[in-house]
Design a protein around this nucleic acid. Structure first.
Length: 850
RNA sequence: GCCGGGGUGGCGAAACGGCAGACGCGCCAGCCUUAGGAGCUGGUGGCCGCAAGGUCGUGCGGGUUCGAGUCCCGCCCCCGGCACCA
């Protein structure tokens, strides 16, 4: 691991009540000293590092709070989007720390992946060099942010000390039958000699890299059997405090579907199994459709149809999934008759078997019974190819469906017709009866199917975790024993622009011995999907240097599950589902005792470029934080990002607003430093009423800031702070500035600012003569009695329109309020007689209806 | 097509069914200054009015209510996600 954390000690900053470098610059307007963010931030950055202020011990007292933010890919430099994702959760983590939690707020790097390899090819630099250089640069940038990261827990996933545990997990999965090898159709580029991801295949099946035409190939790939956990993943999501839309996306992705598996006999003698959610419509099944890749296509196709079928299969293979699954109405149904027939198990009719690309091999059994009258896709297909249509469900209270003329399938409830013994029954009762009957006669059984597929984890790439198996001529595929881990990536592999993984040509990597027989063996050259890395990384932060397993179970028991997970919505499905899957596997391995990794999830929106488009490195629309920090300070930038709008919403960057935040910080500086200097001139004595009003404002502000932070409303939290400071500005030269209430107000202000502007708050806290560090202080609590006003300005409406205002005690009884309002000249003028009605909302308004 | 989230000043945005536009940006005026891309004070939705005040105003059309940006019904538009899943 590359930890370059702590700069050397700062001796001069022992207790600089007023540090000389800041004092040297008196403001020209006569105010004490000008706020100089660069000096303040440099001073405290060094001090915090020297004191290791953010180091979290496993045995620290107090309840734990694990605040996790999705770790970044080390792409080279940070942009303001990284700040948005990290500095704002940092504010919340700081709040929790001040509330007395022991907060774990770690940071690492998602360091495997394709960009490093591409950089290697383009710039002739090794992926490891490129990655670690980037990490070093990005860590410096993260330090500027002032985040309370415990850097002692940092790691990069591309380090063997980390990825060896990916391999360890892989072996455990293999032992439990959760990892397996299978053939799968994947895009293959014949020129680059590699598999391509779906996103790398351009329109027209063109390889993104070399421009050649690519096709699907059946290749042996490694999979993790996430489908074993489909039901549990679906079920356990309900109890999580996650955004509803993320849960919905996961639910849809898992796609649970209840129905039945039915067996149809083929004339070849094989049985053809189908899955259907409507077993009640089986009397209406007039043909069958297989996916072009279905294994029975080969045997069922008659010699006369062989040519047409082969051509169709080849054409289907060339299409991208997007094209093939498009629901575009304009796209006509295509398909070919195989020449073969099946027998409908309830009608004993001979029905034709077709192949068509609207049936997908990856779902259900890859074959369907087609019921044109009850399924829109089937009726479109039947109409296109002149296949028979039979109505088996009649809607109730509507004219009968006519199989000759209908063009829309009827999918609703109704009464079964033309359905043998089931005729006359209603759909809801018929379904379970039919399933029971089919099961009793051996023709099918109830089944639940999921849309979720197993997770394809192999990649033909270099910069990833090597899959720890070897192939031996005698023993076949042999997993490596644990004590041979890690299988390290050779760092001297040669990169050539062929796109082929250097591992394939690395003789020293490739040739090894079989752990079972000692004979010659060949290593697996596939590496793992980088989502494997991120499927358990939060466990590693709890014990980053643990050597006897992926993590120390005791440390995980102390810190996990994660209390708050923050990150982009783009990971709503894959990463979050894989992480949940790994957690359940860890539980089943006995490593942990919980089954869900992240109790609470919050997603930030995306920061767009100023023009409202996505920030792009290539178009130069990325906004770099460095220059902004130099000019305005990290605190102002943090605040500005919070102030942009609701955090979940994101939005376009706006460089001008940053000045407003800087102005606010300067005013806060003025208010506090002038208090510290005791320079507030007084004009007469403060009345008790003034002091009480100030106390009320202080406590109201505590309430607002606390509540807003808890609700992740950072924008309105900042607004509350600004309003507070603006009011203090108005009061600071008056008599109330010499009262205890003032002192309370100013100290509270600094505490309330500590989570969002950690540098400035630390400096001001010191200038108030308070003990280091502000970040170790308790979060202020408010006096509920002070938050409610006793005298309230009540709105006086006449017929719903505001006509006057009146100061009334908040708890004034209705009769009195009514009398006071009706006595108002303005009201008497508008409602001369007795009002029809008076609505009184204590403490808010009185509405006189005339 | 289906499922979410939105539509409020010049801009970013606030608003337990109860003063629409808090707060910030920008803009205008004034003060301070040799100067300001510094600071301070005040103003800033449209229309009418010297003013007091009036009047209109939260995508469009209805409805509920003493009262609707907020609730209900029907549309329009924008942004995400899913997309022949049997």
């Amino acid at each position: 691991m590359t930890d370059t954390t702590a700069p050397t000690g700062v001796t001069a900053a022992a207790n600089p009540a007023v540090s000389p470098e800041i004092r040297a610059e008196p403001a020209p307007n006569g105010h004490a000293y000008r706020y100089d963010p660069a000096a303040v931030e440099a001073k405290w950055r060094e001090r915090w590092a020297a004191d290791d202020l953010y180091r979290v011990a496993d045995d620290a007292p107090g309840p734990k709070w694990y605040s996790l933010t999705m770790y970044p890919y080390p792409s080279g430099t940070l942009h303001v989007g990284h700040w948005y994702a990290f500095a704002i959760p940092d504010t919340y983590a700081r709040l929790q720390a001040m509330r007395g939690y022991t907060v774990l707020f770690p940071m690492g790097f998602d360091a495997f992946g394709l960009p490093a390899e591409n950089a290697a090819i383009r710039h002739n630099i090794h992926p490891a060099t490129w990655t670690f250089d980037n990490i070093r640069a990005m860590k410096d940038q993260y330090r500027q942010m002032g985040a309370m990261i415990d850097w002692s827990r940092e790691f990069a996933t591309c380090a063997p000390e980390y990825y060896r545990w990916n391999q360890w997990f892989f072996l455990r999965m293999l032992e439990r039958g959760l990892a397996y090898r299978a053939k799968g159709a994947v895009w293959w580029c014949p020129v680059d000699q590699t598999v391509l991801a779906n996103e790398q295949v351009l329109e027209g099946n063109i390889c993104e890299r070399c421009g050649s035409v690519v096709a699907k190939r059946d290749l042996e790939q490694w999979y993790f059997k996430i489908t074993d956990y489909a039901e549990e993943l679906l079920h356990d999501a309900e109890g999580l405090d996650w955004p509803e839309r993320v849960k919905t996306m996961q639910r849809n992705w898992i796609g649970r579907s209840e129905g039945a598996r039915l067996r149809f006999a083929l004339e070849t003698g094989d049985a053809l199994e189908v899955f259907t959610t409507r077993p009640d419509t089986v009397w209406g099944a007039t043909f069958m459709v297989l996916a072009p890749e279905h294994p029975l296509v080969e045997t069922i196709t008659t010699p006369e149809q062989r040519g047409a079928v082969a051509a169709y299969v080849e054409q289907a293979r060339r299409q991208t999934d997007i094209e093939r699954q498009s629901t575009d109405e304009a796209r006509p149904k295509t398909g070919v008759f195989t020449g073969g027939y099946a027998v409908n198990p309830v009608t004993d009719e001979r029905i034709p078997v077709w192949i068509a690309d609207y049936v997908l091999m990856g779902y259900g059994t890859g074959a369907i019974m087609a019921v044109p009258s009850g399924d829109q896709r089937d009726i479109a297909f039947a109409r296109a190819f002149g296949l028979p249509i039979r109505v088996v469900v009649q809607p109730e209270g509507e004219p009968d469906l006519d199989p000759e003329t209908m063009t829309e399938a009827y999918t609703g409830d109704g009464v079964l017709v033309n359905s043998g013994p089931m005729t006359g029954k209603r759909v809801p009762e018929a379904v379970p009866e039919i399933v029971a009957w089919l099961a009793a006669t051996g023709r099918g059984e109830a089944e639940v199917t999921y849309r979720l597929r197993d997770w394809l984890i192999s990649r033909q790439r270099y910069w990833g975790t090597p899959i720890p198996v070897v192939y031996c001529d005698g023993c076949g595929m042999v997993p490596l024993p644990d004590d041979r881990l890690p299988v390290e990536l050779p760092l001297d592999s040669r990169f050539t622009p062929t796109g082929q993984s250097p591992l394939v040509n690395d003789a020293r990597f490739l040739h090894t011995e079989c752990p079972t027989c000692g004979g010659p063996a060949r290593r697996e050259t596939d590496t793992m999907d980088t989502f494997v890395d991120s499927s358990w990384y939060w466990f590693r932060y709890t014990s980053p240097h643990f050597e006897d397993g992926p993590f120390d179970p005791a440390a995980v028991a102390r810190w996990c599950p994660v209390d708050l997970y923050c990150g982009g919505i783009e990971h709503a499905i894959l990463h979050l589902l894989y992480a949940r899957f790994f957690t359940k596997v860890c539980r089943d391995l006995g490593l942990i005792d919980h089954g869900e990794p992240y109790l609470r999830l919050r997603n930030q929106g995306m920061i767009l470029a100023e023009e409202g488009t996505k920030m792009s490195k290539s178009r130069g629309t990325q906004v770099a934080p460095d220059e902004l920090v130099r000019r305005h300070g990290a605190d102002a930038l943090r605040l500005h990002l919070m102030y942009l709008g609701p955090w979940e919403q994101g939005g376009p960057w706006n460089s001008r607003g940053l000045q407003g935040m800087e102005r606010f910080l300067k005013r806060a500086w003025t208010v506090v430093t002038e208090t510290a200097a005791g320079s507030n001139p007084t004009v007469g004595d403060a009345s008790e009423a003034e002091a009480a009003a100030l106390r009320r404002l202080t406590h109201k502000t505590i309430a607002r800031v606390t509540e807003d932070l808890d609700e992740f409303r950072f924008n309105t939290m900042v607004a509350a702070l600004i309003e507070f400071v603006n009011e203090l500005m108005r009061l600071k030269d008056g008599p109330v500035a010499r009262t205890a209430a003032w002192r309370e107000a100013v100290e509270t202000l600094v505490l309330l600012m500590a989570p969002s502007t950690p540098y400035l708050a630390e400096e001001l806290w010191e200038r108030l003569g308070k003990p280091y560090s502000v970040h170790k202080q308790a979060w202020p609590s408010f006096d509920a009695a002070l938050v409610v006003e006793d005298l309230v300005e009540v709105v006086v409406q006449v017929n719903g329109k505001v006509r006057d205002r009146l100061a009334l005690p908040a708890d004034l009884p209705e009769a009195e309020a009514r009398a006071r309002v009706l006595a108002l000249p303005r009201v008497a003028e508008l409602v001369p007689g007795e009002p029809r009605k008076v609505v009184y909302v204590p403490g808010r308004l009185v509405n006189v209806v005339g």
